[in-house]
Write a protein that binds this DNA or RNA. Structure first.
Lengths: 232, 232
DNA sequence: TGTACATCAGTGAACGCGCGTTCACTGATGTAC
DNA sequence: TGTACATCAGTGAACGCGCGTTCACTGATGTAC
């Protein structure tokens, strides 16, 4: 069988990989300034000084380019959150939680259009392929690990309730969480609330409502931490 | 001064009002099926059997039509929530809370594209005018009233904390809430978390994570009620 | 090392589409005397 | 009640734009002998 060529060998392959990356970079810039709806293959090609049809050597369609941007967006956000959480002392569960949540918010504020692409309205006519699923889960996994670590060390006491009927079977086990307590549901609550709070701030719904956004966000994440049982 | 003609008097005015409404209806249908990005004046005109330029007698631009749809969307959602909440017994604070939250979710599930227009990504190149502010607040006001009623009757005890530095000055007073407790921030938390949960379900982020969406939503709103101090 | 062939990248033109908006116009409806 | 004028609704053509995608092609790069 042909070995899967992980790194480009020939000069041609190297050039190809580099130009592919350049296309994605330019596309991301356009996305960042004009939003997903305004992203056009022709504009990207124009900026790269090539003819629009040439882009089709690299991406079979506009949707494939979009998918790439979505995957890279989830990965960029996920990595930012993972790095922030990893930088906090392992025993400081609340510190890890805040680091993760704060990194998500910071990334969103720094990349509003990318954030909107990931967590805003679904792009019309576009349906997310399999490749986006794993990257999309990275933030949730970080949050779950903080909780499961607390559970393992005894710092987190499982709240009453039973997730078995609510959560997808097997998922909680993979995350190191019991499925006969209310923890799973609470974690999903915290997860969706985190992005609810970020989205509300970013999309202006709390404009003229909240004046100190950072302080408010901090107290929101503090309460979400309490929801999932992290000790104060 | 010319009296503000509230109701159309002449035949011409009646026809005009009716056709304006028809345009909005068709536009809403298009929005509901294809999403905001695909909404075009020409398509609406086509469906009404008129020439595209004729629509300009009724709306000066596409954006004005969009604004109308946004305002009507907020009003429809707000009214659904208000009616549901009003149907619950006044003393049953938790019942009123659940009725309001459940109505918001139901409306969103029934009108996904309209919901995306209101709470999803901001429409590129479009900035919300003043007219959208008041309708956008209706749901939050319902939630606030449940809490302030509980506060007045003594059923809700103000949690510790101080909102004065976080919330917009004057706002909490208008809502009948004290600004020297943590209630305001908690209410915003509940508000954004409500739409975070709805958005996550609607946009598929909890696909393959939650299997019993309704039950999950119910327990989410139960916990949010506890966050704002409503008695179980 | 040199040649013959295969692979690939990029070109340029074209197809077919739809959009928002403007403008001069016709004909119908309303208003004032 | 009837006429003259003003207002308004709708028409049809046009402007100028940008898009995604296809296709036959040239020329350069890689490969096998």
């Amino acid at each position: 069988m042909t070995s899967p060529r992980s790194a480009p060998r020939t000069a041609r392959e190297r050039v190809r990989a580099q130009l592919t990356a350049e296309i994605v970079d330019v596309a991301r810039t356009h996305l960042a300034t004009a939003g997903a709806a305004a992203l056009s293959l022709r504009a990207v090609a124009r900026e790269l000084g090539m003819v629009s049809s040439a882009v089709y050597r690299y991406f079979p369609s506009r949707d494939d380019l979009l998918t790439r941007l979505i995957v890279e967006g989830y990965d960029a956000l996920g990595e930012a959150v993972e790095l922030a959480e990893a930088a906090a002392p392992r025993e400081d569960l609340l510190g890890r939680w805040h680091a993760a949540c704060g990194a998500a918010r910071s990334w969103a504020l720094a990349h509003p259009h990318e954030y909107a692409l990931l967590y805003g309205s679904p792009v019309p006519g576009y349906s997310a392929p399999q490749d986006t699923i794993a990257p999309a889960g990275r933030v949730a996994i970080v949050l779950a690990r903080v909780v499961s670590d607390g559970l393992a060390s005894g710092a987190v006491a499982p709240p009453p309730g039973d997730d078995a009927q609510v959560m997808a079977p097997g998922l909680l086990g993979e995350l190191g969480l019991p499925d006969d307590t209310g923890l799973g549901g609470r974690l999903v609550l915290a997860w969706s609330s985190l992005f609810g709070a970020i989205g509300f701030e970013l999309f202006g719904h709390t404009h003229n409502v909240v004046v100190a956004h950072e302080e408010h966000f901090r107290s929101v994440t503090t309460r979400l931490a309490a929801e999932v049982g992290l000790p104060a």
